[in-house]
Design a protein around this nucleic acid. Sequence first.
DNA 1: CTCTTATGTTACAAAAAAGGTACTACGTAC
DNA 2: GTACGTAGTACCTTTTTTGTAACATAAGAG
Lengths: 115, 115
Amino acid sequence: MQENREKEDRMVYREKEYKCGIDATLAVVGGKWKASILWHLSQRTMRFSDLQRQFSGTTRKMLTQQLRELETDGLVHREVYPQVPPKVEYSLTAKGTTIIPILDQMCAWAKEYLQ
Amino acid sequence: MQENREKEDRMVYREKEYKCGIDATLAVVGGKWKASILWHLSQRTMRFSDLQRQFSGTTRKMLTQQLRELETDGLVHREVYPQVPPKVEYSLTAKGTTIIPILDQMCAWAKEYLQ
DNA sequence: CTCTTATGTTACAAAAAAGGTACTACGTAC
DNA sequence: GTACGTAGTACCTTTTTTGTAACATAAGAG
């Protein structure tokens, strides 16, 4: 634990500089729907319409946008099936699965400490 | 791990509803400077001017704002010394220290997976 | 032809977050 | 009585994020 904090340990990711990796991680999962999307995809591959159903409070546009960013960051895989009407499936990449334990911890922390 | 995900497990915190605790946690530490502030305070108590020095890229106003929110959420303690010129010290509360391991993990994750 | 369906995109509007600058308070030292 | 120093607050602007509504596509069914 202590070894993470010896120095400032700033980092750069996608052209932006972050003070310590925490901010970089938050940049990746901090979008309004990203954490939930990752969490749902950790349970099963879903197609776009499945996600729309899960996130009935949002719009196609937001979902697409968040998914594209997650894809860009390499956490989510997007598989397009060449059919009409379209079929697109989203799933976690190996890298995407590595962040799930952290999300689980955040979930547990909220349950224990936020009321 | 699996037990966190049996149901939707939405939660309410400070009048807002979150899909699963992850979003609630992000609401608490997701501000632009909050994670860094917590991380610095986990190392030592600091007075306002110390924080200003650490976060030279921001303004008094932003710092105050973020600190107040952290205080409201019970993660940070604000101790005012009745002297002139003023002296105010910030430190983590017990609750505040409980989130540090998660921040450390985020830091480690970024180092390992983001480049 | 026209309608349906799934997965988008685009242009625009609204809301939220962050930033900038100036002003305050008040004991102390000069 | 004027300037100093810390820790703010008030007001306003800019930037970023989120939301809304309309349009796009193209195979297959009728």
